[in-house]
Design a protein around this nucleic acid. Structure first.
Lengths: 352, 352
DNA sequence: GCCAAAATCCAAAGCGCTTTGAATTTCGTT
DNA sequence: AACGAAATTCAAAGCGCTTTGGATTTTGGC
């Protein structure tokens, strides 16, 4: 072996006959180094396979080129596969900019402390907040710490002083509900996510508003709220269909429980789109693919309000990187409208 | 504000009237410091909220207390939710030991280079290899780099010189196939994962061995192989049932495509467990919960070979941490047998 | 009470990078 | 040719921790 140790700044600068200062500046694009020498330095760095030590750079600058994602362990995020898609989108953006993800699993009640530690330790340059609750305390902490962050979702009304990216859940569910009402449905069930989650609360608001506008009374028995897993959709549907007056349409907060819904309907000898209408919120989960096609090719199975969670991951990552670049600008935020796609699971209600 | 800067070793040692050496040693459990002073140091560190800077420690020791997980971007791992469950299990173990996950998304062809960089940069203390191919080149690289790693799965036959943790896929599929044969099925379809993946190859071997033992000829038309997503199961089943002699039983490599299978059967007016038997490999995905219960409570819907991927994540993490502790021991490996649970989707074949 | 051995503790030298403040060179003017 | 400004380059001081080698204090056996 010729060299025992990995190439470092000192060796590189000696090889070039330049000072470490100049080499460092050349590589980091500072203006006070002549273009000619910069070219020389860059070439040599490339040739000698020099790459700066991240921990040394981090120690010197306080920047880590890492983005923190702290997610709940046994809770409602990691537990479901939405997170995988989100992180796939975000990770793609990070990779392009030379950032890495620092992933930490922790129960919600520890997350404040964790953000504090990550900030003090300068372990990450920014974080994204997953699954915001209504009035989430994490936001205040992060603002106080001066740590750049973007919330995926929101936890308060407009104009709040933080960065977020969200889908217009209220309007999406308003539209979906109104669509069903227009078809003639009046008994419309809502199989919602956990309503401590802000997004679920908004979805319910949209649902309730549409009902109210149509003068349809709210029936509490048609409302379910829980973690968005398959068996939940199944059980909720079984319960709903046992009511004296079962719903003629069901609004489901995710395709995961929606699959449980269809399974329950099959068990009951009912068909979605004929006996009962179903609309799902479709996050375009990759393992279902935008596919989840029905028997008719190119017509989606579910009628759905749809917004890609993977694209959301990308956008959140972009916003965060911008925020890290410019920490003192006004908070960025972005609200996406969901698509509304007609599939095979909706129809006017059956005549009795 | 009293203090502008975060508490560091120097400040702490001055506050204690001790040298930085002693304080550092006291906190890191070295033997050459008196228990009495160690107690004093620990108490003061706690009280003054001292936590060592990770980048400084990393620079000084070369250890980062990070575990690298590099996963394929647009490929077959992150794309499906198995990964989320795996990482949830692993992350739990890491958290207990004070490690964090460094997550990097990259196409397979770049992963060798990435491992090289992670090693040279000393960014991680170990890595786990996801989705090993048969004869995977990543293993050789990692061994050459001397980087501790554990493979989730295997890429070669027994006795290979690396750490791995795997489920006995061959035996699992052998058992499942034999079970169907014993019920009287002869036309058994296999809806497998991508057979470049080593685990899929093993599953097929188990399937083929069982057929051969029973003297049943292999029919290529009953074999499918692709990414394990829902629509794949759907389409494969539609294709299978259009054969002149459709299968009477289907073996599916994951509950994801298995859901597509049942959806296709419903569309065709067939019922799983009556008209066609279905056995799935169940990774106990959390969003389906061990539930995915059928109409009869506490009886699982699918007959399945079952092994929790989350538990696998935990175990792989444990093995890796042990490996990091003792890098020069003999390679650790572990083979788990899958459970075989009888659900509602299997029965003797229909008489014609 | 004495001395070697054991137990503690410390000063200082890195780890590899960035950055300050100063030195040196180059260049446009007069 | 001389001079101040502009353009380059550099030496050295951190960043906060670990660790080597040595200094100092305690201990134990006689």
């Amino acid at each position: 072996m010729a060299t025992r140790k990995a190439m470092n700044l000192k060796m590189l600068s000696e090889a070039l006959g330049l000072s470490q200062t100049t080499v460092s500046r050349a590589l980091n694009g500072f203006p006070e180094v002549a273009e000619k020498t910069r070219a020389r330095v860059v070439e040599a760095a490339e040739r000698l396979n020099y790459r700066p030590s991240p921990s040394a750079a981090s120690l010197a600058t306080g920047k880590s080129r890492m983005i923190g994602h702290v997610v709940s362990l046994s809770e409602h995020i990691m537990i479901n596969p939405h997170f995988a898609d989100f992180i796939a989108g975000a990770g793609e953006i990070y990779a392009q900019s030379g950032y890495d993800i620092l992933l930490r699993l922790a129960p919600l009640e520890e997350q404040e402390r964790i953000y504090l530690n990550l900030a003090e330790d300068q372990r990450v340059d920014g974080v994204v907040v997953h699954g915001p609750l209504t009035g989430d305390s994490r936001i205040g902490i992060l603002n106080a710490l001066g740590m750049p962050f973007v919330v995926h979702g929101r936890c308060d009304e407009e104009g709040a002083d933080y960065c977020w990216m969200d889908v217009n859940n209220r309007r999406a569910f308003h539209r979906a509900t109104k669509f069903l009402l227009d078809l003639g449905h009046e008994r419309i069930a809502l199989i919602n996510g956990l309503e401590t989650m802000n997004f679920a609360e908004r979805r319910r608001q949209g649902y309730e508003a549409a009902l109210a506008e149509a003068g349809v009374a709210l029936d509490e028995r048609l409302l379910h709220s829980a973690d968005m897993v398959e068996p939940y959709g199944y059980q909720a549907t079984r319960a709903l269909m046992e009511l004296d007056e079962p719903p003629t349409a069901i609004l489901v907060a995710s395709v995961l429980p929606a699959m449980g819904v269809t399974r329950a309907l099959v068990d009951l000898g009912l068909r979605a789109g004929e006996d009962v209408s179903v609309i799902a919120f479709d996050d375009c989960l990759s393992f279902l693919q935008s596919g989840y096609k029905g028997s008719a090719p190119d017509i989606p199975y579910f009628t759905a309000v749809r917004s890609s969670i993977r694209e959301a991951g990308k956008r959140v990552a972009q916003l965060l990187l911008e925020r890290i670049e410019t920490p003192d600008g006004p908070p960025l935020s972005e609200l996406w409208e969901a698509d509304f796609v007609i599939g095979q699971t909706t129809a006017p209600p059956r005549r009795r």
